[in-house]
Design a protein around this nucleic acid. Structure first.
Lengths: 177, 177
DNA sequence: GAATCTATCTATAACAC
DNA sequence: TGTGTTATAGATAGATT
């Protein structure tokens, strides 16, 4: 859709490529925005240029859509398991581990952000500080629960003396305390 | 770009909307694919239909691009902190806590999923089990690092005697061991 | 209700500044 | 490097099957 037809193949000239990238990225985000409005769809897009500069579009937000996607992925994989379909090879498992590590990085970032924000609020809004601190400690408690579950998992890997369902129950029990 | 021009506003007729969604989603993914080939860009797209059905496109993969994006986000937020930019109000903070809790739940599910998969592999592929177990323990170690960071944060909230940047350094130091 | 067709609209490649 | 213009390729709204 330009003066000439172009082949869909790597653009070699860096200058032309940069212009093409900028224009088509803009076009892609515009299309995504139209799709979300026309059809009430939720969309997240992340793009990296060849120089590794990140660009993103999200309606209602990249994080929201990403989290939703991950939940669906889990449900899907659970369904697969319930049907006793073959589980993938070792590579897929390692990919899952990488996914989790990536998300742990996000948690880390959020945690550091909270540190900063809490500190500022502590200085500027002492009346609300107590409430927020409670939330924060609650969050921490939940993370510990998770870590506990991981520890139980370790035992399971090393000893394999207990069915997996038991772990789920243990976590839930711990939650209710 | 059809027989008639349409306004960019919610399509009311469910039938028409479904057709539009399907066509434009296909078009969007095609454009994304062209952009990635033409410009050597890495792209991830996630779309949810109005009925919450998920669709995704990724080059080289949704997970890969998402993880890369999150790492960049972390770097960016650290820069923001260094520049002492304004942070938002208490409502936003509570929202952040809810977000994190939601993602912790996801991690929990993933952990349990891994238990299940690992157990299956232990039974069916003993030769690869050792390698996977190592990855799992490595993942566990990283999660512990994160928990440690949270613990440091607790001290910071309660005592507020240490600048936040120090925490980041501590986490990084711990990582390298 | 999905696939195909086609008139028309939109995105953009090349150009220009 | 960015912004604007224009001729043309490509996407798609509505129709048809």
């Amino acid at each position: 859709m330009g003066r000439r037809k172009i082949e869909i193949a790597a653009v070699k000239d860096p200058n032309t490529r940069q212009v093409t990238f900028s224009k088509r990225r803009t076009g892609l985000f515009k299309k995504a925005n139209e799709l979300s409005i026309l059809c009430g769809a939720e969309i997240a897009i992340v793009v990296f240029s060849i120089g590794n500069r990140p660009y993103s579009f999200g309606h209602p937000g990249v994080d929201v859509v990403a989290a939703k996607f991950l939940e669906h992925e889990i449900i899907k994989s659970n369904d697969v398991k319930q049907n006793n379909v073959e589980v993938g090879d070792i590579g897929r498992l390692n990919q899952q581990l990488l996914d989790i590590e990536a998300r742990i990085l996000v948690e880390e970032k959020k945690g550091l952000e909270l540190d900063q924000i809490l500190k500022q609020h502590r200085l500027s809004q002492p009346s609300q500080f107590k409430q927020l601190q409670d939330s924060y400690l609650e969050f921490q408690r939940r993370l510990k629960d998770y870590t506990d579950a991981i520890e139980v998992s370790e035992c399971l890997i090393l000893l394999a003396q207990e069915p997996v369902v038991e772990i789920t129950k243990q976590v839930k029990k711990r939650r209710k305390n």
